[in-house]
């Protein structure tokens, strides 16, 4: 445990000292703050639910950027210079410790660098809205961070399997496009083609195949409420047995999305030549 923590610490320091991480931190912070500011205040009306297209843009921005950043950071870290990898792996520590340590450090980096935007927005939201608005925001950030973990693990998995930096980056970019775009277009197409109950089942089941969709739907439900999806939202909740169960299923599935790639990655890494 101590070793994992030390590796995480080193990973964290390496990444936070990186100027690209700093640039990302500053820009992401400005974007998130700008969006929450305009969403909260620019309308000039009070007593209206804060969810609006500005919140939707915040959601969108984070859903684009966070997986991408997690994938890039993860790939860079797990395909870093051979020399330092070899030295690290020759230490009397297990490969699992290295994997967990690096992932923990990477997650800490993402947590820390998004904290600038999310944190200062949280202060703003805490001051400008009531408790429930703040709680909604916190659970939204929680979901987004969960998404970043999933994509870090996916990146580690890809980097370990493909081993070469270029190949890993190609794969990772494909994964990003696939989960952000292609998957959804396929599902939308399927929904239009299929009929009735089959379409229902198809859509709801296919949600589980894409962590981005899970977090998007989950965040919309958290930030606004399921009514935002209209009839589809009602059907969704009925399909999963109510709001509470839907949320439990959501968290459970996201955990599965973390654990299975993590398990395979750690198995792969044990048999991988460094």
């Amino acid at each position: 445990m101590k070793i994992i923590f030390e590796i995480a610490k080193q990973e964290f320091v390496i990444n936070t000292r990186n100027k690209w991480t700093l640039i990302f931190t500053i820009i992401f912070g400005i974007l998130v703050l700008g969006i929450s500011y305009s969403g909260l205040l620019a309308e000039g009306f009070s007593g209206i639910q804060n969810f609006s297209r500005t919140s939707a843009s915040l959601l969108n921005l984070t859903l684009y950027i966070i997986p991408l950043i997690a994938l890039v950071m993860g790939t860079l870290s797990f395909t870093s210079d051979k020399g330092s990898m070899e030295l690290l792996f020759s230490q009397p520590i297990s490969r699992k410790q290295i994997l967990f340590g690096k992932l923990l450090g990477l997650f800490a980096t993402i947590f820390f660098s998004t904290a600038v935007g999310f944190g200062s927005s949280a202060i703003l939201i805490a001051l400008e809205t009531d408790f429930s608005g703040f709680a909604k925001y916190i659970s939204f950030v929680f979901l987004i961070l969960l998404l970043s973990i999933i994509f870090l693990i996916l990146a580690a998995f890809v980097a370990i399997v493909s081993f070469r930096k270029l190949k890993a980056f190609g794969t990772v970019l494909f994964i990003w496009f696939f989960f952000e775009l292609f998957y959804d277009i396929l599902v939308i197409g399927g929904t239009v083609l299929l009929k009735g109950q089959t379409a229902n089942t198809f859509v709801f089941i296919s949600l589980f195949g894409n962590p981005v969709d899970l977090v998007r739907v989950g965040s919309l439900i958290v930030l606004d409420n399921p009514t935002i999806f209209g009839a589809a939202g009602a059907q969704l909740l009925r399909f999963f047995g109510g709001e509470f169960f839907s949320f439990v299923i959501l968290i459970f599935t996201l955990s599965v999305w973390c654990l299975i790639p993590l398990f395979i990655a750690s198995k792969k890494l044990a048999k991988q030549d460094i």
Partner: peptide, 10 residues
């Protein structure tokens, strides 16, 4: 049902 993809990149 496609409204579930509201505000998705797709």
């Amino acid at each position: 049902l496609t409204r579930l993809y509201l505000y998705s990149p797709a």
